[in-house]
Design a binder for these strands. Structure first.
Lengths: 189, 189
DNA sequence: CATATCATGTAACCGGTTACATGATTCC
DNA sequence: GGAATCATGTAACCGGTTACATGATATG
């Protein structure tokens, strides 16, 4: 499940240029599968060589020519295979949570700003997902996409609620701990 | 925030060998910050060279000598700096969710097994976290660690509840979709 | 008898990330 | 005038992952 598979995936939604794929990947996939955009163009070239996509070059003025890719039957099969072979691993890499584990070593204002930024981010995603769910677009979505939206809403709301209701307590406790340690240090020294 | 910083972090909890750190990182950190174990030993050597840790070699019989590392003041400062400089990014890389997005392309039994395995995994973590929260160990934990446990419980319970209550519906819908497509293909063909 | 635990490490590979390069048009 | 959008790419680096190597003791 690498950059190439992700490109194949986006192409199941319709023909697209590298730029289109990049936007799609940044806007809707980045929440659960991030890749770096510069890897997309080489990946598409390789896919073309392997016959998993075909490409059509559209001349442009003042910009590089647009190259529109289409999924081939082989490409669709390759994606199906990649999905069937995937172990479905769900991996979190969170510097935020590492920071929380070592909260006593970081500046309290830093903790607060990171947590509140995360809460705001989640609330933004939540609002966007709800808007989508209540729009006409949802009727054309697949069962999997609707499931994913429901999953995202459930998890994001739980997370942002927890953050909003516990951030201040955490900051208070961290600051109390710090002053307690400082005063016991003063006694010793 | 790389392997070296994570090692420094574990050493704030007390002196430890590479093996100890590895276990700690696999058992309690892996849920939110995964690194590969083989990177730990070179990382510790580098940290020793930089003076961020000191090491004591303890002779062993029938095994490689044990090397116990201790955090220096410089190491503690370096970790503080790493935390202060971190943007606290929370990143999810989930093949599971990609599979859900393209649910129509994957075998339904596969979807089901991946989702149920995830639910079971979450329930295991949840039970372990609750057991910790209700044990004596929690009294020695820092505010940050208690916050992290509360966060984990809130998020994991929301996720497993959603999965348990929606998996069957998803599988049904995917199968209905498949047979609908198959019959419309039959009409065409 | 086989597997898990303890305990450390090396070497090579490969893929992702970063930084760079170009340039017209449109919006604030 | 500056930033954002459209549109594609290359080159180098670096770090993480995989696979491998060793071997005793305890547990089932």
């Amino acid at each position: 499940m690498d950059t190439k598979d992700l490109c194949l995936g986006v192409l199941t939604l319709g023909d697209a240029s590298g730029y289109d794929i990049r936007k799609q990947l940044e806007q809707t996939f980045a929440h659960f599968m991030e890749i770096s955009s510069s890897g997309i163009y080489p990946a598409l070239k390789q896919l073309a060589l392997q016959g998993l996509v075909t490409s059509t070059t559209i001349p442009q003025q003042g910009k590089p020519n647009k190259i529109v890719y289409s999924l081939t039957d082989g490409g669709r099969r390759a994606l199906g295979l990649a999905l069937a072979e995937s172990d479905g691993r769900h991996k979190v890499q969170s510097e935020m949570l590492v920071m929380m584990f070592y909260a006593g070593l970081a500046p309290p204002e830093k903790l607060k700003s990171v947590l509140l930024a995360r809460a705001a981010e989640l609330e933004g995603y939540t609002a966007a997902t709800k808007a989508w769910r209540d729009s006409d677009a949802v009727d054309q979505a697949t069962p999997g996409q609707r499931f994913l939206a429901g999953y995202a809403l459930a998890v994001m709301e739980a997370e942002s609620k927890f953050l909003r209701s516990h951030v201040d307590d955490l900051i208070d406790e961290v600051e109390q701990d710090k002053s307690a340690i400082a005063s016991s240090d003063a006694k010793k020294g």
